[in-house]
């Protein structure tokens, strides 16, 4: 079946089964491979995209459910002012090890800061808990989020 999708501000047409997850539409049909496959069951967050600004796991989102929605992927996140700040903070803090999960991390962080411009450590934990970083760059992810938010970057959790 043919679907018209609004991805990063452009209309893209695909002809696929309606229950195909958006992840595989992006990766295999449209060659937008910045969105990553990690688990396929919404447990790791590597495939996080924005659906009308909400952080969403593309691996369990059927393509039939997103027609008419504004889809943003990592390839388009710099168009958002907050997204661009988050990307810049990720580079400034030098977050990456392998980097595979980081597109999803950046998408989750951008959604967080859009809703909550100055999150607490507990709010960061809650928003980012769904994103696994196997290299465990969590300290730098936390720091980069605070930096993008223009906050002091110290970890304020109880010790």
């Amino acid at each position: 079946m043919a679907y018209k999708l609004n991805i990063n501000g452009k209309t893209r047409e695909v002809d696929v089964d309606g229950d195909m997850p958006l992840l595989w539409v992006l990766r295999d049909e449209l060659n937008l491979v910045g969105t990553k496959f990690g688990c396929g069951v919404a447990q790791c967050g590597a495939c996080t995209i924005h659906l009308d600004g909400e952080a969403t796991r593309a691996c369990i989102t059927p393509v039939s459910s997103v027609e008419g929605a504004k889809i943003t992927t990592i390839e388009g996140i710099s168009a958002s002012k907050i997204g661009a700040k988050v990307q810049a903070a990720w580079l400034e803090v030098d977050v990456m090890q392998c980097g595979y999960c980081q597109a999803g991390q950046i998408m989750s962080a951008t959604a967080l800061l859009t809703q909550m411009p100055k999150p607490t450590d507990a709010q960061i934990d809650e928003a980012m808990e769904g994103n696994i970083c196997r290299c465990a760059t969590y300290a730098r992810i936390r720091q980069a989020i605070k930096q993008a938010a223009g906050m002091a970057t110290a970890d304020t959790r109880e010790v």
Partner: peptide
């Protein structure tokens, strides 16, 4: 300190990992 050479490409979501490889005519 020298920051990760590939990091700018990673934050932009560019194809850089093995799983991103694409060859004309390939099947999955």
């Amino acid at each position: 300190t020298h920051k990760g050479y590939d990091s700018p490409r990673i934050v932009r979501g560019e194809p850089i990992f093995g799983i991103d490889a694409r060859v004309n005519g390939m099947v999955h």
